[in-house]
Simulated scan of single mutants.
Amino acid sequence: MLSSSAIRRWYWVHKWTSLVSTLFLLMLCITGLPLIFYHEIDHATGYSVEPPELPGVTSRVSLDEIVSAARAKRPQDVVTFVLRDPDEPEAWFVSMAETPQSPDSSAFYMFDARTGDFLHEYPLNQGFMNFMFRLHYDMFTGLPGTLFLGFMGLLLAASLVSGTVVYGPFMRKLPFGTVRHGRSSRLKWLDLHNLLGIATLIWLLTVGVTGVINTLAIPILGVWQQTEMSEMTAKYKNEPAVQHLSSADDAVKKALATVPGTELSFMAFPGTNFSSPHHYVAFMYGATPLTSKLLTPVLIDASTGEFIDSRSLPWYVKALLVSQPLHFGDYGGMVLKILWALLDVLAIVVLGSGVYLWIKKRNVPIEARLGALAAEGAAP
């Protein structure tokens, strides 16, 4: 049994971590709800399209044709990435920018991989889903906003642990699921807050921890670029940048042959933050449920098309890659997405009821409040 001083300390932690973080966590839960169905909403609203059905067509055009078509649409810009989507294998996606080091894309195109036809230009930095994503990701403030939200995720974890420690021993004296409707409104909401908090505890911890990891994406990838990537490209450091690129199609084929049993996720063109001035870097994913979320980089000399190096990503990058889909329930198809959405709604109720309980709080010491709760739970 916790002593009175221990109860006060844990209650202080729970109260202040909850108070500081609740409004931001409510915002994250509300904005995160539509983001669970990001792809479905984009298709429904016309921001994304599906390749047309072409029965019997199995051939694929060269990636070089796709790249040339993208360059023809924006000759003043450069291709920075080509991407594949496992859910849309009939399409190539091409990202362009003013320069390889530009922080933002200037265009994002979709081409038919079977015919080479242009299918769609994605509107950049527009629409409802873009607004929700930016608000959820960094509150439109860049890296400082991202790191701040990561700190809120740490406060959430502290609030969940301290809440379990404070209320757990007392709630065991009540039948699980008890909500005392016959008492005051505040007591009813306290029971509901505790019940839903316990019911969603593991999910909230999972989403909170993976969210914190996701907020560290830029520092994590920066460390990888300064260590592993620098080692892989060290001998090219003093060589001039490539002026004439070798075949992008051949680079992808070389990567597929280098790492058998994988498919291309995306390939960075020379000069971007995910490559070097001298290399294509193809990021390959595996065929199993776990390896499909992990990536293996393959370096291809951008002037000769020769294989240079490939090595497994370090553990901290793997942790990031696993956390990103888990945070949004993107592991088990629509069933898991629906489950994630339901748990998100329950989390909103937990957070909202916490705000209500604070507004309606009475100036009664925590020991007295929990003592009364225990007495009521023990009463026949």
Score class of each variant (00 low, 15 high):
residue 340 W to V: 03
residue 133 F to W: 15
residue 244 H to W: 11
residue 307 F to Y: 12
residue 6 A to M: 13
residue 60 R to F: 07
residue 7 I to Y: 01
residue 175 P to Y: 01
residue 179 V to D: 00
residue 17 T to Y: 02
residue 100 P to Q: 05
residue 115 T to Y: 05
residue 110 M to G: 02
residue 76 Q to F: 00
residue 135 L to E: 10
residue 314 P to H: 04
residue 346 L to V: 09
residue 315 W to P: 06
residue 167 Y to L: 10
residue 112 D to R: 07
residue 137 Y to C: 11
residue 10 W to M: 07
residue 196 L to G: 07
residue 225 Q to M: 08
residue 73 K to T: 09
residue 222 G to D: 06
residue 6 A to G: 08
residue 185 S to K: 12
residue 66 I to D: 11
residue 178 T to I: 13
residue 300 I to Y: 08
residue 308 I to P: 00
residue 357 L to H: 02
residue 146 T to K: 14
residue 153 G to W: 04
residue 129 M to H: 06
residue 94 V to K: 07
residue 22 T to W: 06
residue 359 I to C: 06
residue 143 L to D: 12
residue 194 N to H: 10
residue 49 V to I: 14
residue 74 R to W: 01
residue 171 M to I: 05
residue 109 Y to E: 05
residue 6 A to F: 07
residue 86 P to T: 04
residue 238 N to H: 15
residue 311 R to I: 04
residue 177 G to D: 02
residue 40 E to N: 12
residue 149 L to V: 00
residue 241 A to R: 11
residue 346 L to R: 00
residue 235 K to L: 11
residue 54 L to G: 05
residue 121 E to H: 10
residue 78 V to T: 15
residue 223 V to R: 02
residue 318 K to F: 03
residue 218 I to A: 14
residue 316 Y to D: 12
residue 51 P to T: 06
residue 276 S to P: 09
residue 326 L to Q: 07
residue 241 A to M: 08
residue 235 K to C: 01
residue 46 G to H: 07
residue 346 L to A: 15
residue 335 V to C: 02
residue 212 V to D: 04
residue 237 K to G: 01
residue 70 A to W: 05
residue 43 H to Q: 13
residue 71 R to A: 06
residue 368 A to P: 05
residue 70 A to H: 03
residue 140 F to C: 14
residue 294 L to Y: 11
residue 103 P to L: 06
residue 99 T to L: 06
residue 78 V to Y: 08
residue 264 L to Y: 04
residue 82 V to D: 01
residue 196 L to K: 04
residue 299 L to C: 07
residue 164 T to V: 13
residue 285 Y to I: 13
residue 229 M to V: 08
residue 30 I to P: 04
residue 120 H to M: 06
residue 136 H to N: 14
residue 268 A to V: 13
residue 86 P to W: 00
residue 115 T to R: 13
residue 218 I to G: 02
residue 280 Y to S: 01
residue 306 E to H: 14
residue 159 S to W: 00
residue 206 T to M: 15
residue 148 F to D: 03
residue 248 A to L: 01
residue 126 Q to D: 15
residue 136 H to A: 13
residue 189 W to V: 01
residue 187 L to S: 11
residue 324 Q to I: 08
residue 357 L to K: 00
residue 377 G to I: 00
residue 251 A to P: 10
residue 176 F to H: 06
residue 276 S to V: 04
